[in-house]
């Protein structure tokens, strides 16, 4: 929601029906509103001083915005919440018992409204299932797992067909390094591994 400016062109029934007291216009602020403390700004705003309200907004808006941003709401929801906070302050202005604690009041109300909005929206976000196609989860992909097992079975069959016990031992050492003792002659083992890989590849290509 964007900023909504008051529409003064219509007749608001509340204005018409309100039987509230009519205050004398407040005196103009001698200095900028920011020179006065919160209690004084609240007192003048209660009397109808827009300048005092402006002072309150300019003093506390950054804090209200910072608190609202910390809840990571969507931008429209955050704007609605922040606007509702200021509407609530305007509504409670005549009833604030401790106006000198205005900052704490605003902080509490902002947090409260953000929490409520977040709780309400937590279950509302529609999600496109396609958006999850690229998300990597902890669980193995069933298709990849099946292909891996099929490859292992074909490799095991090819190893079983190796006639040379040395090559078979080298193949098992390559496939299961933890369960096979290390080679005594590393150079010979390296040459044997190359032969074994060539033979395995030939066997697998014949199988396909």
């Amino acid at each position: 929601m964007g900023a909504r400016l008051p529409d003064q062109s219509h007749e608001d029934p509340e204005t018409v029906l309100s039987s509230g007291p009519r205050h004398e216009p407040p005196p103009p602020l001698a200095t900028t509103g920011l020179d006065l403390d919160d209690a004084e700004l609240v007192r003048l705003a209660r009397l109808g001083s827009r300048e005092a309200w402006c002072g309150i907004v300019d003093r506390h808006l950054p804090m209200v915005n910072a608190v609202a941003r910390s809840y990571r709401l969507s931008a429209p929801d955050r704007e609605d919440v922040v606007q509702t906070v200021w509407l609530a302050l305007n509504q409670h202005l005549p009833r604030l018992r401790e106006p000198h604690h205005l900052r704490a009041w605003l902080k509490r109300v902002t947090r409260d409204k953000c929490l409520r909005q977040r709780a309400r929206d937590a279950r509302q976000y529609p999600a496109d299932p396609e958006a999850f196609a690229h998300v990597e989860g902890d669980a193995p992909d069933p298709e990849a797992e099946y292909l891996r097992k099929e490859r292992d079975r074909a490799l095991r069959r090819a190893v079983d067909r190796l006639r040379d016990p040395g090559e078979r031992e080298e193949a098992l050492r390559f496939l299961e390094p933890d369960s096979t003792p290390p080679p005594r002659d590393r150079r010979a083992a390296s040459n044997g591994r190359r032969r074994m890989v060539r033979r395995l590849r030939t066997t697998l290509e014949d199988e396909i």
Binding site: L5, R50, V82, L89
Partner: peptide, 19 residues
């Protein structure tokens, strides 16, 4: 820091104080 300032300023309305 200034985001929402217009809406905040527009919230000021004393006509409902007696409600």
């Amino acid at each position: 820091d200034r985001e929402g300032r217009d809406a905040a300023l527009a919230a000021f309305d004393r006509s409902g104080d007696a409600m």
